[in-house]
Design a protein around this nucleic acid. Structure first.
Lengths: 138, 138
DNA sequence: TACAATATCTATCGTTTTAGTAGTCTTTAG
DNA sequence: CTAAAGACTACTAAAACGATAGATATTGTA
């Protein structure tokens, strides 16, 4: 399951994708439209700004807007930012590799092979779910 | 990511799968072999017994053993037991359906379609990772 | 029959994560 | 100058996670 943070981030990103290169949206308008607590959304958008997926303009008539093309941002990206590795275990993660503390020898670990297969398929399906796709399906 | 509970459960199940219809294993021997805290594993095996994936024999020469064939238990099953829904949101879960609290109208939810596609692919890859497969890859 | 090895049950606990809320400060268009 | 916007810092309640502790029940074997 996605955390609420991640789901809210996705919804906000889809909102911004709809006005990509056409305009911007305020935190308040996204929050209201998507039924997200405003102050919580504020934090989420700040994080998205930190990782350079969005940018913002302060002051009157300010707001947030997408930096990348909607076809270049996917659920996989947001999952990694807010919910961490897509893989089932740290030792098979490409982006967040870490040895497992209970695993004595990684090379002979009998979980590895299946975990890698699941990871590859999950990565693929999450990467295919781009913001663009979400908009197309409306 | 899988929780430790779930990963430990999987390891224990694979251990039991190796001796399926040949014998049983004690909590202590699984814990030692797989580097799992014994008392924690104890709870996990009790849960697996509750859902009828394993059974046990008390007393001297007792232990745990698989109830189902190793080809009939998969990562998907264990994920559902210990880590909940495989789907990215409760509203697209087949086994744990619940409406999302931030979703105003499920029928017109623009996340649904992509989420269902991801769910189906993830379910498939996790269901294919049966205990049997883990053993074959050794 | 006693005992040792096993599983079972119930409770507790420290830490981290989650999902927020509150309040203040900064920037900027009009 | 001011109202409307984002930025920043701090805090908090509740739940989940990853265990640990201790007492009880069962059973094969000597």
């Amino acid at each position: 399951m996605l955390s609420k943070r991640c789901k809210y981030a996705l919804k906000a990103m889809v909102c911004l994708a709809r006005v990509y290169q056409k305009g911007h949206m305020t935190i308040a308008s996204i929050a209201e439209q998507e039924n997200i607590p405003k102050k919580f959304l504020e934090q989420i958008l700040l994080e998205l700004k930190r990782v350079k997926l969005v940018n913002s303009k302060k002051g009157l008539a300010g707001g947030y807007y997408l930096v990348k093309d909607p076809s270049e941002v996917s659920v996989a990206d947001l999952h990694r930012i807010f919910d961490g590795p897509i893989a089932l275990a740290p030792c098979v993660s490409l982006n967040y590799y870490e040895p497992c503390d209970d695993c004595l020898d990684e090379q002979t670990c009998y979980l590895r092979h299946q975990f890698i297969q699941i990871r590859d398929k999950t990565r693929k399906s999450m990467s295919e779910a781009t913001l663009q796709r979400f908009i197309e399906n409306e």
